[in-house]
C-alpha cells in the first residue's frame, strides 16, 4: 500500500466511530514495534534473541564495553544517547550472528582501545597487566632480603670487639 492510499484508508477508518480507539492502539503498537530497531536501545529494555548463546553474548558485551562519552560507565549502565546506539549495534550484530571478537573489533576500529573495559593484552598494555606481578616480585625480594639479614643477626652469637667497646661506653653513660 502506498503512503497516500494508507493515509486515505486511515482517514476513513479514524472517522468511523468505534474503530478510532482500536486503530489508534494499533498505530501506537506498530510505532513501538517499528521504532525499536531504528532508534537507540533504551536502558534496561529487554531484548529478544533466538538462542541462549546470543543472549549471553549480548549481556556479556554490554558490560565489557565503555560508553566513550561518559567514560566511567559501561554501555549497560549508561543513559547517554551514544550508549544507546552502541547497545543497538551490539544487539543487531549479535542477532545477525557476529562473534564476540567481531563486535569488539568493530567498535575498537571506530572508537579505539578505550571502548574496552577489559584492556586487551598487547604491546602498549604489557606494563598495565604485568605491573601487579612485578610489584609483588619486587616486594618479595625486599622481604627475602630482610629475613635473611635477620637470620644472620640471630646466627651470630658473639659480639665483635668494636660492639663490645660501644656497649661499654653506653653503660658508662658517655
Amino acid at each position: 500500500m502506498t503512503g497516500k492510499a494508507l493515509q486515505a484508508y486511515l482517514h476513513d477508518r479514524l472517522h468511523a466511530p468505534g474503530y478510532r480507539t482500536l486503530v489508534l492502539a494499533g498505530l501506537f503498537l506498530a510505532a513501538v514495534v517499528l521504532a525499536s530497531p531504528v532508534a537507540a536501545l533504551p536502558m534496561g529494555k529487554p531484548v529478544d534473541f533466538e538462542t541462549q548463546e546470543q543472549e549471553a553474548q549480548y549481556q556479556k558485551l554490554v558490560r565489557e564495553l565503555r560508553c566513550t562519552v561518559c567514560q566511567s560507565e559501561t554501555i549497560h549502565e549508561s543513559n547517554a544517547a551514544l550508549a544507546g546506539d552502541m547497545r543497538r549495534r551490539v544487539y543487531e550484530m549479535t542477532a545477525a550472528g557476529a562473534s564476540e571478537q567481531e563486535i569488539i573489533d568493530f567498535l575498537v576500529q571506530r572508537y579505539g582501545d578505550y571502548v574496552r573495559y577489559r584492556p586487551a593484552f598487547q604491546a602498549n598494555t604489557v606494563l598495565l597487566w604485568t605491573s601487579p606481578f612485578l610489584i609483588l616480585f619486587a616486594g618479595g625480594m625486599v622481604w627475602l632480603q630482610v629475613v635473611r639479614q635477620r637470620q644472620r643477626l640471630v646466627l651470630r652469637q658473639e659480639l665483635s670487639a668494636e660492639e663490645r667497646a660501644a656497649l661499654e661506653q653506653f653503660r658508662r653513660g658517655e
Partner: peptide, 13 residues
C-alpha cells in the same frame, strides 16, 4: 537522526 553514520565515523558527541 539516528547516529548511524556517527557510529561509523566514531563520533562521541
Amino acid at each position: 537522526p539516528n547516529g548511524e553514520a556517527g557510529m561509523e565515523w566514531g563520533v562521541y558527541a
